[in-house]
Amino acid sequence: MIQFDSISDFFHMGGYAFYVWLAYGITFSSLAILIVMSARSKRKILVEIAGKIAREARLKESRGINSESKT
């Protein structure tokens, strides 16, 4: 059974609205930040690795050109 008579009653929380919603707000926003940061870091790492691969490929290519020009 729902313990509150109306929606405004629910948001009022029997006079403790500030504390209850502050607690819930901080909890879910800090969890959201943690989850978003954790989820994003995977792509960041992959992009970093891809950048490294591209750099290595470029290095190899330029070395190949150099050795060809020598012969």
Partner: peptide, 10 residues
């Protein structure tokens, strides 16, 4: 009163 509802996350 209602303030105890913080318990469900605390």
């Amino acid at each position: 009163g209602e303030s105890y509802r913080i318990i469900f996350i605390h």
